[in-house]
Simulated assay, not measured.
Amino acid sequence: MDTDDFADVDPVIELRGVRKRYDTGGEIVEALKGIDFVARPGEFVAIMGPSGSGKSTMLNVLGLLDAPTEGVVLLNGRDVTDLSDEEMTLERKRSIGFVFQNFYLIPTLTATENVEVPTLFDDDPTAHDRAIDLLSRVGLGDRLEHRPNQLSGGQKQRVAIARSLVNRPRILLADEPTGNLDRETGRTILEEFTRIKEEDDVAVIAVTHDSQVTKYADRTINLVDGLIRTEEDDYGT
């Protein structure tokens, strides 16, 4: 989809003038230096940059795992910058799914049980059926009772994707999602992200070193020394 197609769609997540500083023990490191960024429903954004450029910090701020030192974070148009830890946790659960390079599946649980993990403290009678449906959607309908040691790397990543979607998020954040996969399996995962953003209207934001990801993204931004360098004009920001 062309970036112009998103211009009239309200952002689901937005950063305005975000700076993030860390005290490393006598030295202040500024990981983000005034970031303006938006992502909209149904959009796939790739964030690239060298190690130490601030990509992980930016992902943590987008995922409400870390608060900015300065600036504003808007989620669904609402300022969530200064929420309490409890409120942040609730907003993450409502709106944000995470996919990590190392999968982080629980080895003693089946694929279905791993997908259900984010719902364990909810009184949600539909969670089990939703987990099965999601696993079937990502091509693992015949692996429901398999444990992680019985799954390939690509299958583990698909379990992790299903888990990230079980609470029906509006945003999917992926940290090096193809990093531990061979190229063909990585392509399968990226095709799954494309399907998710198109069918579920989810904003997919992937931090990556893998140039293959940019072929599937609607937009790629480059983060260098805590500053955004856009390949295309960043519409609407």
Rank of each mutant, 00 (worst) to 15 (best):
D2P: 09
T3D: 07
T3W: 01
D5S: 15
A7K: 15
D8C: 06
D10Y: 03
P11G: 10
I13W: 10
E14A: 15
E14V: 03
L15H: 10
R19G: 00
K20Y: 02
K20W: 03
R21A: 13
Y22P: 07
T24G: 01
G25A: 12
G25D: 08
E27H: 13
E30T: 10
A31T: 03
A31D: 07
L32P: 09
K33S: 14
G34K: 10
I35H: 04
D36Q: 08
V38G: 03
A39C: 12
A39R: 00
P41I: 03
F44Q: 00
A46L: 04
M48Q: 06
G54I: 07
K55I: 05
S56L: 09
N60Y: 13
V61G: 04
L64K: 09
L64W: 08
L65F: 05
D66P: 05
A67K: 15
N76M: 08
R78Y: 03
D79I: 09
V80Q: 01
V80P: 00
D85M: 12
E86I: 10
L90H: 11
L90W: 12
I96A: 00
I96N: 00
F98T: 01
V99Q: 03
F103T: 02
Y104S: 06
Y104G: 00
A111E: 02
V115S: 13
D124P: 11
T126N: 11
R130D: 14
D133H: 11
G139D: 08
L140H: 02
G141Y: 07
G141N: 09
D142C: 11
E145V: 09
R147V: 12
R147F: 08
P148A: 13
Q150F: 07
S152T: 13
G153L: 08
G153Y: 11
G154R: 07
Q155L: 06
K156Y: 00
R158K: 14
V166F: 04
V166T: 12
N167L: 14
I171A: 04
L173A: 10
T178N: 00
R183A: 15
E184C: 00
E184V: 12
T185W: 07
T185G: 10
G186Q: 05
R187G: 13
I189W: 06
E192G: 04
R195M: 13
I196C: 03
V202G: 02
V204T: 00
V204M: 01
V207N: 01
V207L: 01
H209R: 05
H209A: 03
T214A: 15
K215G: 13
Y216N: 07
A217V: 07
V224M: 12
L227G: 06
L227N: 13
E231N: 11
D233V: 14
D234Y: 14
